[in-house]
Design a protein around this nucleic acid. Sequence first.
DNA 1: TGCAATGTTGGCAATATAACCAAATACCCA
DNA 2: TGGGTATTTGGTTATATTGCCAACATTGCA
Lengths: 110, 110
Amino acid sequence: MDIKLKARYEALSRVIKALSHPTRLLIVEELSRSRYCVCELTEMVGADTSTVSKHLSILKNAGLIKDHKVGASVYYELLTPCVLDFIGCIEDVIKETAEKQLEATGIVTV
Amino acid sequence: MDIKLKARYEALSRVIKALSHPTRLLIVEELSRSRYCVCELTEMVGADTSTVSKHLSILKNAGLIKDHKVGASVYYELLTPCVLDFIGCIEDVIKETAEKQLEATGIVTV
DNA sequence: TGCAATGTTGGCAATATAACCAAATACCCA
DNA sequence: TGGGTATTTGGTTATATTGCCAACATTGCA
């Protein structure tokens, strides 16, 4: 395969990989509503602060969010609202899959 | 966190994870243009047939593609064209990130 | 029927992810 | 300045992912 194309797919997959974790999806959706600091997100996620901090750094590294300090706190905000459409698309995929599985059972006809 | 919400994020991340691999992105884009059998995709990808077959089964499992046999061959087709928009969005993210890095060097002003 | 071609599955080794704890850093205020 | 709060980073362990090879299954054809 062409080297340039390969690099493109690798770059794409790096960003998509950043989105492919339940906690990071939650963070992205929350940040689509408002800016939050790490401690607020930690509360929402319900995990160790260090864990949340690492998730945030992965999203930031992927270019999806950015941060700014306010006092001792670090606030994060979403840079790319288009990822929300993406989530909507994936949600449709899941819905269709579920419907097909229901059909397969023969219990209902959609 | 709410159990139902958690399940939703896990379902989303399962599908996104299926997309988060260079080879699988290539396959999705190719399948957006036409149906292909495993041997054709193997050629395009340039990896072992078994490797490609496993990638295809991951995409199929995620509900993104489906297959049908024609003789000894298995053809795959894309079920969800909306993932292409998604790829476009991610491409923008990458572009913006690259521009910012250029700016940071001070070499150019965008 | 026997063989060649097409795919899938199991196994193994290498690598990547993820979560927690502990330690280090940065910042604010008394 | 000293302590407390907020965050990041390093270390460790457990788990998941990936790629190839080998073995097996299916199909078509001579």
